[in-house]
């Protein structure tokens, strides 16, 4: 018995060593950005701190209209998170709990669009948005949010399908409308899946640099697009990019994503478990 216990302890220690080593490997590249964000812009890149120019962080938020970019980031993320989380839920509920001719075919279409390479529609969509005046407006995001996302519709459907029928029937007998049932019976028990969808949508929309690049002119860009367009230049000369300042900005920009993930992760696992994605 004693030998078994020592062996188990040994296994435990090995496990922690492996995990911590892996953490170092996975974390180090991100650390490199941080270390480099503190170097002076006249020095070359470094693998550990070679200076502490905290001024880079100040420059990161003052050299460009950081506040304005941030507001646009928040607007886009807000529209996407609220809209997508709500509308995907509504559509998912329809597929989980309501019946109508053609339901099977429609659901297979949803699954198929999950597999469709987005790029096939993106370029013509971009041209059409230009024609109908959606450019330099938030309409592309509003429309996207209304339509929901196939993957999230799928998640919601899985989740709602697992909720016992009895609850719904009881409410119906009490004279509750279908939408009322959705709001009062289904939504309150769906916190894990709602959080999952909200966190994932936030990550996606906060980090998306491409769509704003295509649909918005620069004074409406969110941070993701502004940063990738290398705006930290000396005297507006595109040949002179201040990389340490850009790195500082990237760090600041990543903070909200990391926080939402750190806070939301508990629900994320729970949300996915309960949707029965396990198949």
């Amino acid at each position: 018995m004693v030998a078994g216990k020592t062996k188990r302890q040994f296994n435990r220690i090995t496990l922690y060593i492996v995990i911590i080593l892996l953490c170092l490997i996975f974390f180090y590249p991100a650390f490199v950005v941080f270390a480099n964000s503190l170097r002076s812009y006249t020095s070359t890149s470094t693998l550990f701190f070679n200076g502490f120019h905290w001024k880079n962080y100040l420059l990161a938020v003052t050299m460009i209209p950081f506040g304005s970019y941030l507001l646009h980031s928040l607007a886009i993320a807000g529209i996407s998170v609220i809209g997508t989380t709500m509308m995907s839920g509504v559509v998912g509920f329809g597929f989980a709990r309501l019946y109508g001719p053609g339901k099977n075919v429609l659901f297979i279409i949803i699954l198929a669009t999950m597999m469709l390479p987005g790029i096939v529609t993106q370029v013509p969509q971009f041209l059409i948005y230009h024609r109908i005046g959606f450019i330099n407006t938030y309409w592309p995001w509003v429309v996207g949010a209304i339509g929901g996302s196939p993957f999230f519709i799928f998640l919601y459907k899985q989740f709602f399908s697992n909720i016992p029928k009895e609850m719904e029937e009881a409410a119906r007998i009490d004279g509750c409308s279908t939408f009322g049932i959705f709001l009062r019976i289904f939504i309150p028990v769906s916190v894990p899946v709602i959080t999952t969808v909200a966190v994932m949508t936030f990550q996606g929309s906060w980090g998306d640099a491409m769509s704003p690049f295509m649909y918005l002119s620069s004074n409406m860009w969110p941070l993701a697009t502004a940063l990738i367009s290398a705006t930290y230049t000396l005297n507006g000369n595109a040949n002179v990019v201040l990389y340490p300042v850009l790195e500082a900005a990237a760090i600041i920009f990543a903070v909200p994503s990391i926080i939402t993930f750190f806070v939301g992760q508990r629900y994320l696992v729970e949300g996915i478990v309960t949707t029965g994605l396990k198949g």
């Binding site: 971009f126 041209l127 230009h130 024609r131 450019i135 295509m214 002119s217 620069s218 004074n219």
Partner: peptide
Amino acid sequence: VTYNSGALPAEFASGS
């Protein structure tokens, strides 16, 4: 606004 060569063709086509 920042010059964005990628968006220009569509902007020309749509008059924006």
